[in-house]
Amino acid sequence: MSFPIFSLRDINFVYPGGNDVLKGVNFELKAGEKVALTGHNGSGKTTMLHIIMGLLKPTAGQVMFKDREMKTEKDFRELRKGVGLLFQQADDQLFCPTVIEDVAFGPLNLGKSPDEAREIAKYVLCLLGLSGYEERVAYRLSGGEKKLVSLATVLAMQPEALVLDEPTNDLDPSMRDRLADILCELDVAMLVVSHDLNFLKRVTALEYSCHDQAIYKEASIFRSDGTPSDCKL
């Protein structure tokens, strides 16, 4: 039997001093699946993604990576090698002076040599149509460019699954199309949070929604055979 890349089991979450945000959440992402997650502002989507990455600790329930339960920070380090998160605020994801250094940061942490890391970074930047951005100063890019560079930093880790938190925010329509093309081409599992239905239709095949503190599968606009409507896996 093959395990999902990651799964959440009966997750509860409460922010300190706040109300319940998630209650009894179950979710899994299998290899190759492209899943949309929709839901109102404040319904707990970002919170759920941060729980998956081990950035927030659930008050109850389990986070599984493949067949193992993630408990300690050390466990989650393993998970983060396999699962890449694109943050809602791209600004905060960039912290090195130049674009190439930022993209190479992950590979270097994974133990690649400087030369290998540079190669990977260049390859990923090229993949995203960002060749020529290598020496640009990361914090002086436009919002959309920052988003793409942030995506590059995530892809450079060569993850098995991508978790994208509102990737089309502050992208113009042509940028959005480009991003959809890129994501369609990528052969990794994806969980995409977005309010942009057209974008989701192109990129994802299954829809889940987040409301009433839990995650529900939707029988929706998407095709049911597990492939996105507009592009091949």
Binding site: R77, E101, F105, N109, P114, V154
Partner: peptide
Amino acid sequence: DRAQVVWQAMLCRGFTGKFHTLNS
């Protein structure tokens, strides 16, 4: 808050406390 997020972003990219650099 934002410092927290920067720290989380670093964790997500495999940061374990040691800075590596492209330049040797």
